[in-house]
Design a protein around this nucleic acid. Structure first.
Lengths: 219, 219
DNA sequence: ACCCACATCCCCAGAACTGGCGATGGCAAA
DNA sequence: TTTGCCATCGCCAGTTCTGGGGATGTGGGT
C-alpha cells in the first residue's frame, strides 16, 4: 500500500509541485492539500494520512500551532515540517509540538520522498544541519564537573538515593550498611561538593544529570 | 581530499572489516584503528582524523568516556558512535559527551559510508529509530503537573528558595516574613506535592523544570 | 614499609527540620 | 454570608541532619 500524504502549504505553486511529485512517484499518493492551518485542521482528520508535510509560515495560525492541535487527533500520523526556517527556535518548537521530521524546502525531491518513507518507517528525517543543531542541544549539557567526578562509587550511590528523598536510615537499609556509614559518606560528599546540606547536594547532582535544552522556552 | 577516519572497536574482525570498507571506498581512508579506549586516547590525537567511528562497549573505559576526553583535544573531529545499544540512556550520554552521530552496527556499509560523509559535511547521521528517539525527547512536553500548579504564588516562591538550599530562617529573611510563616508554607507545599521532605519536594520541582532524560522543552 | 583513599563502624551535641495543634485577617467565590 | 484559600504568625514534641571527634581494615601506590 502506498503512503498517504497530505500537504499544508500556502503557496499554490509549491503546493501543486509537491502534489505532483508525490502523486507522480510510485509508493506515494497525495490524499489532500491545504492552503491554511484552519483548512488543514478541519479537513486532514477526515483523510487520516500517513504523513503530513507542513509548512511553518502559514497565513493566520502558524504551522507549529497546527501540528500541536492536529497531532492529538491523529497520533498515528507523522508530521514533517517543510520550511525555510533553520533557527533553533522554530526547530525545537516544531518538534515539541509533535512533528517528527524537519526538512528544509531546498531539499531535492528524491530526498524528500525518502524522508517521507523514513518517517513512515519509524524514523525522523531531518536535513543535515538541522540534525546537527538538535544534537548540539544535548552537548551544552553540563560537563560532569571535576567535583562530581571525585565522588567514590559508594558516595555516588548514596547521593543517588539522597536525591530520591530517602532518609539516612532508609539509605542504610538499602545499601546494607549502618546508619553511621551513610552518615560518613554523606559528610564526605558534602566536603567534596562544597555544600552544606542535602538539598544543595541534590540540586548540584540533578543539575548535572538533567541538562536543560538551552532553548527551552520559558513559561 | 578523502575523509580521514579512525576506528575504535575492540572486536578485531569488526575492526578489520570496517577498515577494509573505508579504505576500499574512494573518498575515504582509514588512518588508524584502536582496540581500546586507552589506545584511542593516546593515539588518535596524533592522526587528527576527520571522523572517528567509536564503539561504546570497550574493554576498560567505555566509548562514551573516551569521546568525552577526546573531543576537547580534537574539536574539529566528528565522532560517530557505532554500537548495538539502542536505549535512550546510551544515546543521550553519547551525544552529551560530544558524539555527533549515532549509528547502529547493523547499518549496511553504504549507509555507513554516507553517514561518514554526512557528519563530515556538518550533519548528524543517526539510524532511523535513534533519530526518532531523540526527537521524542522533545515531545514529552512536561505537562506541568496539577500538583505543582496548585501551589500558591507564595508557596512557589518558598519552593524556589528551598531548592537553592537555603535554611528556613534564611528564606524567612529573604521573603521578609517570620520563620513560622515559612514553616507553614512548607508544610502546605509538602501536603500538595505529597512529599515528606525538603529533598523530595526539590527533586519534584527540579524534575519539572528540568525533566529527566526524556527532557522536554516546556511550552 | 608507609601513606592514602576508601569503606565500614561508633558516640555526641547542637542545629535544622517535620508535623501536630492552634490563631488572625483578607479576599473571592458560591 | 458562609465557605474556602491564602498569607501571616505562634508553640511544642519528636525526628532527622550536620559536623565534630574517633576507630578498624582493605588495597594501591611509592
Amino acid at each position: 500500500m502506498s503512503i498517504a500524504v497530505s500537504i499544508v502549504e500556502d503557496d499554490a505553486r509549491v503546493r501543486a509541485s509537491l502534489a505532483r511529485l508525490i502523486d507522480g512517484s510510485s509508493g506515494y499518493r497525495c490524499v489532500s492539500n491545504h492552503s491554511s492551518a484552519e483548512d488543514a485542521l478541519r479537513e486532514i482528520p477526515k483523510f487520516r494520512p500517513d504523513v503530513v508535510l507542513m509548512d511553518i509560515n502559514l497565513p493566520g495560525a502558524n504551522g507549529v500551532e497546527c501540528v500541536r492541535q492536529l497531532k492529538p487527533q491523529l497520533p498515528g500520523t507523522q508530521v514533517i515540517m517543510l520550511t525555510v526556517y533553520q533557527n533553533t527556535e522554530h526547530i525545537f518548537n516544531a518538534l515539541a509540538a509533535g512533528a517528527t521530521g524537519y526538512m528544509l524546502k531546498q531539499t531535492p525531491p528524491p530526498e524528500l520522498l525518502s524522508a517521507i518513507k523514513e518517517v513512515h518507517a519509524g524514523g525522523s528525517p531531518m536535513s543535515g544541519h538541522i540534525a546537527r543543531k538538535i544534537v548540539q542541544s544535548f552537548q551544552h549539557a553540563a560537563p560532569v564537573s571535576a567535583e562530581a567526578q571525585s565522588l567514590s562509587p559508594r558516595e555516588a550511590e548514596v547521593l543517588e538515593l539522597l536525591a530520591k528523598g530517602f532518609l539516612y536510615k532508609e539509605i542504610a537499609e538499602q545499601m546494607k550498611v549502618s546508619y553511621a556509614t551513610v552518615h560518613t559518606h554523606i559528610r564526605h560528599i558534602y566536603e567534596k561538593l562544597h555544600v552544606r546540606s542535602r538539598t544543595e547536594a541534590v540540586a548540584k547532582h540533578l543539575g548535572q544529570k538533567q541538562p536543560r535544552h538551552e532553548f527551552a522556552p520559558r513559561i
